[in-house]
């Protein structure tokens, strides 16, 4: 294999750090001068930034495991595209699809949500929110999702290179200063508007817009929801956390999982469901999943039933079924 030292690619993760600092300063300045929409709150923003610093620190261990795993998989590669313009492009697109799949899992499997929830825990939406990143990704096993790319023959450093570009792009999405862009761009690319939807707790916006750079994955797989003026995003979680304490921001969902799993009187299936079922699942129905929140919203607002991001009224399908001719 190409030795890691033979591949000359810039460290996009490191190069992006000046972009983050300058980007935040520009956004803050524009908002301060009243030239752009958006809000900053001192404790909230500092919590996000310090979560980002913690992510860099814990990410070192993750990166070691990731590179080791990918290097192992790369040794058994099926193809050998090398590092050139088309392999970089192809790797970028495939990696973005991998991120779409992983991101959907982060929202639909509680074990992964425990890692990702802190990124959604700010009730603000600005460039610092982008840096509110997890400290516990090593426990998710998500490095396994990188292996197919390495098996296909993409060099581990190439995968990290395109991943760094992907993350830098995503940083720029976390802002209210940019409205909707030119329609063709909004159709293909993930934009601040699409990502505002993703960070919202409005029922119609839950579990939507998982795309990272390209939004087409959401359009293909039916998870796309457009930002609507009449239902402006309400940022944060369905049940917001009441703390800026970094420890609890990072670990609160893991603690909740632990408490749920050791509850007395549960079956083994129920304990496993508390770990791997969608967030909001409970054995006694005392909590609500995204699907249940959407159904509740439609019951309270029947005129919204069947609109993008919302289900039909439960009775409607049954009624339709009744008028279908018998075979």
């Amino acid at each position: 294999m190409d030795s890691l030292a033979n591949i000359q690619l810039p460290n996009t993760g490191q190069l992006a750090i000046p972009l983050y600092v300058v980007g935040i300063l520009i956004e803050l300045g524009l908002i301060w001068l009243g030239k752009a929409k958006g809000q900053y709150e001192h404790k909230d923003a500092m919590t996000s930034l310090l979560m980002g610093v913690g992510n860099v620190a814990t990410g070192i261990i993750y990166a070691v495991v990731l590179i080791a795993m990918m290097t192992w998989a790369y040794n058994y590669r099926i193809f050998d595209p090398g590092v050139n313009w088309w392999s970089i492009l192809l790797c970028f697109v495939l990696d973005d699809f991998r991120r779409y799949v992983y991101h959907a899992g982060l929202h639909r499997i509680r074990w992964w949500w425990a890692d990702h929830v802190n990124h959604h825990s700010s009730q603000h939406y600005n460039l610092t929110t982008a840096l509110r990143q997890p400290w516990t990704t090593i426990f998710t096993g998500s490095f396994l999702l990188y292996l197919p790319l390495a098996w296909l023959g993409f060099h581990p450093l190439l995968i990290l290179f395109v991943g760094g570009i992907n993350l830098a792009y995503q940083f720029l999405l976390h802002t209210e200063t940019v409205g909707k862009l030119w329609k063709p761009i909004e159709y293909v690319m993930n934009t601040p508007s699409h990502h505002r939807v993703h960070h919202s707790s409005n029922p119609r916006y839950l579990d939507a817009n998982y795309g990272c750079v390209f939004i087409i994955w959401d359009r293909i797989f039916g998870t796309f929801v457009e930002e609507r003026e009449e239902d402006m995003p309400k940022y944060g979680l369905v049940q917001n956390i009441g703390t800026f304490n970094l420890f609890y921001v990072a670990f609160h969902e893991w603690i909740s999982i632990f408490k749920d799993v050791i509850r007395p009187g549960l079956t083994m299936r129920e304990r496993l469901m508390y770990m791997f079922a969608p967030p909001g699942w409970s054995h006694d129905g005392s909590r609500k999943t995204s699907e249940e929140l959407k159904a509740q919203y439609v019951r309270l607002h029947p005129d919204q039933a069947g609109m993008e991001g919302l289900p039909e009224l439960p009775g409607k399908n049954a009624a339709r079924g009744m008028v279908q001719p018998a075979e």
Partner: peptide
């Protein structure tokens, strides 16, 4: 720098 600016702006 961001901390100082946020203290002033918040």
């Amino acid at each position: 720098l961001i901390d100082v600016l946020l203290r002033l702006a918040s």
